[in-house]
Every structure is written in C-alpha cells, then in structure tokens.
Nucleic acid binder design. Structure first.
Lengths: 116, 116
DNA sequence: CTATTTCGTTTCGGAGCCGTTTTCATCCGC
DNA sequence: GCGGATGAAAACGGCTCCGAAACGAAATAG
C-alpha cells in the first residue's frame, strides 16, 4: 500500500520540515548536499564522485566541493579504492548516520501532525 | 487520520523529491527560499519581511535578498502597504503558484511510488 | 614502454548568500 | 513640529558555491 497524501498535505509537510531544518542551529545543507547525503546512506555502496555527479546531473567538481564541505562537517568520509586507485569511495560516518536518522524522525513527526 | 510513514520511507521520499529538484533545469532554491515560498503560498496573508525573518529565525537582510532573487525569478512580488508605508507586503504571483503546485504534485507522485 | 583514457582534484573568474552596520523613509508620542 | 522608534533596503567585507578548463595520478591499450 503506497503512501497516500494530498497536495496540500504534501506542501505543508515540506514546509514544516524545511522550516525546522532552517531554524536548527546546524548549517543549512544545500539541495545537492542533502541529495548526496541521502544517496550515500540509503543506496548500496560503493559511491564514487563520478557516480554521484551522473546521478545528480552536475559536474564532478561540484561533487568534490560538496564532499569537502560535508567531510569537514563529519557527515561523510573519503577513502581510496585499493582495487583501482583512481577511484575515491565515499563512506558513511557515525555523525552522518545520526544526522540522517534525525532527519527521518523529523519528517515522520511532521507527517504525523498533518491535518487529515 | 494523520499520515503514517516509516523513517525509511520518509528518507526515501525526501531523497527522491530533492533529487528531482536538483535535476530539474530550474535554479536550485535554498532551504530558506523554499520555506519563504511555501509560507507565502500556504499561510494567510499579509506577509512582511519582518514577519518572515522572525519565523525563519534569520536576519531581515537575508529575507530581503531572498525576495530579490525570488522576485527576479517571478516567484513572488512586493508591494508597499498603503496603510503603513514602511511595510512591504509580499504577494503571490501566477508563476509562483504554478511552481508551488508543481512541487506539491511531485511530492504526491513520489510518495505514491514508495515501497510499503 | 609509450600513448591514451579515466578519475578525482585544483585553479580560475564570476556570481550569490551570509551577518553587521548604516541609511532612508515612515509612523507615532509628545 | 520634532525626536525617537520602526521597517526595509543598501553598503560592506567575507565566505561559499558555480562551471570550465587545466592538472596529476593511475589504469589500460597497443
């Protein structure tokens, strides 16, 4: 059974969750950074710069820079692929997992509060 | 009856919708801009710079600049409050309403595709 | 062993957003 | 009227992001 939600509810949900994220003291993640974060934590590894760039439809330097920022915030880590040392594997971190978990709980809570 | 959704579904929904927004040709809106857009179109008017700044927990110049950008994209319009000419009223536009509607439909569609 | 391809990063100039501070117009108490 | 309070915008310096292009390291083809 899929999730049934009306457009007005969907928009209020998006509004409420985004507002919470804006008001939180953590630095705002860009849309690209959120997509990278969720991709790395939801989809099976391995994740590479090239793969993420293709998936998001942006250039590789954009991914590299996003990973710089997110790595500095402890949300992801980078490791050389020993099989093919040209590749960089993006790895999950404890802090990143906690952040993703927090976002998931936030969405669930806001969904629960929606008017029927 | 509230919307029931599990954390894993919630995160996948957020990922799918954000990815669609990143991949769309329209320029990425920041989290603040999305919050402003949805606030203006979901909550009853009037909306002022000061009111939005308080709600989002950011400074007024940040709102002014976001409105500059969004106004340039045709998503909102500004009008002087004739009752108190110090105030600026943020108004909805046809393009903004279409954008909001599109986002709502996108979320609904992505929610429908979620695995149970 | 050399030439080419692939992958990620760095560099570059340009653009946008940030908070603080200052400016400007308007309103209101006196 | 006039002085202070208020609302928004402008000015300012700093930071981050952008895509394009150049670069270096590593793998691969011949």
């Amino acid at each position: 059974m899929p999730i049934e939600i009306r457009p007005s509810q969907a928009l209020k949900l998006w509004h409420d969750v985004t507002l919470d994220l804006v008001r939180s003291d953590t630095p705002d993640l860009t849309a690209r950074q959120i997509t990278i974060l969720l991709t790395v934590y939801l989809e099976p590894p391995p994740h590479t710069v090239r793969g993420l760039a293709e998936k998001l439809g942006v250039t590789k330097p954009a991914i590299t820079r996003a990973l710089d920022t997110m790595g500095h915030q402890g949300l992801v880590a980078r490791r050389r692929d020993e099989k093919d040392r040209r590749n960089v594997i993006i790895q999950r971190t404890v802090d990143g997992a906690l952040t993703v978990e927090r976002i998931g709980d936030l969405i669930v809570a806001r969904a629960k509060d929606l008017p029927r």
